[in-house]
């Protein structure tokens, strides 16, 4: 089953996030948006216009932002915290741990402009540690949608899920990959392309690069399976084990450090259940040089052709 050829048009997933949140808020008066002066960067302008009382802007104060959100949930509100991912996760990590995760507060954390979306602004504004920081915390699903369709579906799912979660969104344009009307299922990988020689696993802004890499591999006579693994925790162990058993090699790619992120999460399942050769692509444990997100992804070996080369090299290891 092959997914349709991706449309060349690129979409900023923040638009799907904002439109969905506004639609949900119109139906559910308990929904509030909590932000740290991030109305513009979170695309909350429409929400502010429609529901001015329900935009809780704490100013530039991320620790307080998370605590306030936990208190709002205690008081029966349904908060979506919308802030740049590096500050939402890094600045207020202990608040996320104690007030949200450990307290199991029904708060939706939405990290905007994650990964290296703020490319040229430099490593202070990159959020390439957030999978690692968030996925060690109990009670906290970690989700990185791959396109505007999955973003809208995940934002809608979050409202009906009785507990906290972390949605990791980007501002970098991505094509449509999932069919219109797609429903988000927590902890369920999406098979985007069938294949038996190797499996390519990604989420967020990397999934469409994996699809292009699979096309390149197909031209070389290699059949690559592509899994979109939006949910990093709880992870789809069955899909990963099946990929290992059926294709014998796994390549992961992520807009994150290679330490502790998607590739690490996949590798944990692989070593426990079905050891096969793996290649984990990502930021190699350094602070990135200056450049746009797209430039940096290419620079770190995640251009589609480089992913294809890595997959080919991995397949050779499998045969050895």
């Amino acid at each position: 089953m092959n997914a349709p050829v991706p449309s060349p048009k690129l979409y900023d997933c923040r638009d799907a996030f904002a439109a969905t949140l506004e639609r949900l808020a119109a139906e559910d008066e308990t929904i509030v948006a909590v932000c740290n002066d991030s109305v513009g960067s979170s695309k909350l302008g429409g929400f502010k216009e429609k529901f001015p009382e329900r935009l809780v802007n704490v100013g530039i104060a991320e620790q307080n932002m998370i605590g306030v959100a936990a208190g709002l949930a205690n008081g029966g509100r349904l908060p979506y915290v919308c802030a740049a991912a590096p500050f939402l996760t890094g600045r207020s990590l202990e608040q996320v741990k104690a007030d949200i995760s450990y307290s199991n507060a029904n708060v939706k954390l939405v990290g905007i402009s994650s990964g290296m979306a703020y490319g040229e602004l430099g490593p202070t504004h990159h959020s390439i540690e957030d999978f690692a920081w968030m996925r060690v915390l109990p009670n906290l699903p970690v989700i990185a949608p791959c396109d505007r369709i999955e973003t809208a579906a995940a934002v809608e799912w979050a409202a009906s899920y009785a507990g906290p979660c972390f949605l990791r969104l980007s501002r970098v344009g991505v094509p449509d990959l999932l069919p219109e009307g797609h429903k988000f299922e927590l902890g369920k990988a999406n098979l985007l392309r069938e294949g038996s020689d190797v499996t390519l696993i990604a989420n967020g802004t990397l999934t469409h690069r994996m699809m292009k890499a699979a096309e390149i591999l197909a031209e070389r006579g290699i059949h690559a399976r592509v899994l979109n693994l939006a949910t990093v925790r709880p992870i789809d162990e069955a899909a990963i084990i099946a990929a290992a058993n059926e294709t014998g090699a796994i390549v992961t790619a992520e807009e994150h450090s290679v330490f502790g992120g998607l590739g690490s999460a996949v590798a944990e399942v692989v070593v426990d259940h079905a050891p096969v050769p793996m290649k984990r692509l990502g930021v190699p444990g350094i602070f990135a040089p200056t450049g746009s997100a797209e430039f940096l992804l290419d620079e770190f070996g995640m251009a589609p052709s480089a992913i294809a080369d890595a997959a080919e090299a991995l397949i050779r290891r499998k045969a050895a």
Binding site: V56, Q63, N64, I66, G67, V68, A69, A70, G71, L72, A73, N74, G75, G76, R77, Q95, D99
Partner: peptide, 11 residues
């Protein structure tokens, strides 16, 4: 205190 502010804001 931040959580309490959120509780009071919810009310």
């Amino acid at each position: 205190l931040p959580v309490a502010v959120g509780m009071a804001k919810a009310a």
